[in-house]
């Protein structure tokens, strides 16, 4: 399974490297969202700094949706879903591979958005270790949920509009927990961020467990 996962992840990352969708389209869009937030809050630095953790995760949530769309759209093109079914790769391996490639792309997006938050909102990261662990846990949860629901929408004709409808409600708890953990990392809250990180890890584990079981049938019947 691990071999299959690495194979699929590598292929997806080569597709991304060749097309550079994340860096040339998704990341600029997410940064643009930060700018729009700044305008919306009338460049009120105090307000922006207070809301920076939430704005970070909102930008990542919507930018990440495009990454999930893209990662599964390539499997729907030119009959590639049939080729994947015929490939002999373990469905669980394909699922884990999709998570790995999503996590890698989301982390790149998050680094860029974080730089944007620090630059545009003049936010200070007081606990960088907590922030990195929270980002990683949130990304794992996002990646596993994205891989699961991306597969769910794979065989659906209107998947471009369906996927956000399915995924945004599922991602909302991740956004909430990630925001709370980041508030702690930014020094905006005295509540321990580790509890929220624990919740993110639980969500990642739950979505991964469901996906390991469900991905095969979804690939066949979706």
């Amino acid at each position: 399974m691990l071999r299959d996962a690495l194979l699929v992840a590598r292929k997806d990352l080569v597709v991304e490297w060749r097309s550079r969708t994340t860096t040339s389209q998704v990341a600029p869009l997410a940064v643009l969202m930060l700018v729009i937030f700044a305008f919306a809050f009338d460049a009120n630095r105090e307000l922006l700094q207070r809301g920076a953790p939430g704005l970070f995760w909102v930008a990542v949530l919507f930018g990440g949706l495009l990454i999930v769309q893209r990662t599964f759209a390539v499997e729907a093109e030119d009959g590639n879903r049939d080729a994947l079914r015929m490939s002999g790769l373990a469905p669980s391996g394909i699922f884990v591979g999709k998570i790995l490639s999503l996590v890698a792309q989301l982390l790149v997006l998050e680094v860029i958005v974080l730089v944007g938050v620090v630059v545009f909102f003049a936010s200070d990261v007081e606990r960088p270790g907590l922030l990195m662990v929270a980002a990683l846990a949130g990304t794992l949860a996002y990646g596993s949920a994205g891989a699961l629901f991306g597969a769910l929408a794979l065989g659906v004709r209107l998947r471009e509009t369906l996927l956000p409808l399915l995924l945004i409600p599922v991602l909302s708890p991740i956004l909430l927990a990630g925001t709370r953990a980041f508030e702690s990392a930014f020094g905006l809250s005295t509540v321990g961020g580790w509890n929220w990180i624990g919740l993110l890890c639980v969500m990642a584990a739950v979505y991964t467990a469901i996906g390991l079981v469900a991905f095969g049938p979804l690939l066949e019947d979706g």
Binding site: K11, V15, V74, D78, D82, M86, G88
Partner: peptide
């Protein structure tokens, strides 16, 4: 499936690869 090669009307190619 492991023993079969199937080519349909589509070519099963990743456009960006």
């Amino acid at each position: 499936r492991r023993h079969v090669a199937m080519l349909g009307h589509e070519n099963h190619l990743y456009a960006d690869l």
